[in-house]
Design a protein around this nucleic acid. Sequence first.
DNA 1: CATACGTGGTT
DNA 2: TAACCAAGTAT
Length: 331
Amino acid sequence: MNSSAGPAAEDPQQDDHQGIHRAVIEWYARAARDLPWRAPERTPWQVLVSEIMLQQTPVVRVLPVWRRWMQQWPEPRDLAEASPADVVRAWDRLGYPRRALRLHAAAQSIRDEHGGRVPSRHSELLALPGIGAYTAAAVAVFAFGQRHAVVDTNIRRVEARLFTGRALPSRSLTAAETRLAEELLPRGVPESVAWNQAVMELGALVCTARSPRCSDCPVREDCAWLVAGSPPAEDVPRGQAWHGTDRQVRGALMAVLRAAEEPVPRRLLLADASSAEQLATEHGAPPQVVVDGLTALWRLPAPAEQRERALAGLLADGLAAESDGGLSLPV
DNA sequence: CATACGTGGTT
DNA sequence: TAACCAAGTAT
């Protein structure tokens, strides 16, 4: 309320935000989803795995994969001992399969350099493969209860609207946003953890990108964007190209490799619609290796050069490996 | 700072 | 239907 000089004068903003802190945290207690990685008995490893899986991936798609994953590899050591092929298969179609490889490498680092326990320091987490600023903070906060500013896409959007009055945050994370998130963090450790979790959930459930449910928002009275009349976003979001891209070809190649139980001959993997037909004609019979997704791969309107390039990328990333009979997931 | 990197549901 | 979007990271 007041910002007179005193012990707390170093962050005069804090008093002004207490009402917002209280309202959002109270809303969370009432409206939060019941997710397994939030259960009281959750382990740091469970939290870490969930955070990696949730990178750019919706909760509903992560849930079933996470459950299987934690049953199969309940501790970092368990995953560390698995083969990359098994890890990539278990990742299923979560997308960005390089995350699976990095999580595997992180598990090995945890085993080799941290005694098999997920490290709790932000700096140590940050040093693990596949873990950046967001995930390091998220694990430190949600698994270890520390006080750090978590800055994900949800929190960026909520804070952009609530305090900056903009419909959407900028394309990339700015220093100003990080500073704002840090300034908004409640003083007390438990409160800061609750705040991070609550704002993220608010962004996921109410303050959504497309059609925000402002009538359900606990801080709609304080929202700079709403007060300004909900002006539209300024810059047009660049679309994520897909059709005809290398990424699409990589995805189709990965689908085949995941389904294959044996190495897939290179010519089979790199065939296009016409050459596949030619192969069948010449051999007078369907290919010996029947693999799910091969037909879809052949049907892609991608030139041979692009298929070669996509496969080379997979090999370079360690998502595919060459063997006697052809290509397979890395053993 | 921009770009590559999967996948599938929603609008 | 095409475009948008989802708890980012690495280069």
